[in-house]
């Protein structure tokens, strides 16, 4: 993949694509969520040396997605953050804080 390339994928393709990119020697840079009118826009960024690539996942509001924290270990922090702040449902996070990472008064403020 080229630097800065954004690959739009479906929710079912997330785990296979993550496995593939892990196999290619990439590291996880960040996971970012954005609220859209109908749901969420998730961007997973990976880097190998100076090349940065992204997966884009557009999901409706109540869709449950799989965690990639068993493929990329540091993903658990980003995923817990997204669960806490956005209320996206993410299954099988390796260390699941169950909405208690930030422990903020107002639940899912970005929702």
């Amino acid at each position: 993949m080229k630097d800065g390339q954004i690959l739009s994928i479906g929710p079912g393709d997330l785990v296979p694509n993550a496995l593939q990119i892990k196999h290619d020697g990439y590291r996880l840079v960040q996971i970012c969520a954005t609220r859209t009118k109908t749901g969420y826009d998730l961007i997973y960024s990976f880097a190998k040396e100076y090349t940065l690539v992204h997966f884009r996942l557009d999901i409706p509001e109540n869709m449950e997605i799989m965690s990639i924290s068993n493929i990329f270990e540091p993903a658990f922090l980003y995923e817990n953050e997204i669960v806490d702040l956005f209320g996206v449902k993410i299954n099988l996070i390796s260390i699941d804080y169950k909405g208690q990472l930030y422990r903020i008064q107002k639940k899912t403020p970005f929702k």
Binding site: V29, Q30, C32, T34, R35, E73, P74, F76, L77
Partner: peptide
Amino acid sequence: KANGTRFLDRVRVRTPTFANLP
């Protein structure tokens, strides 16, 4: 992420310490 108005849709900052925690 901007939408052509004065207000941005989203600003997200991934800071180094967040990445260093694991």
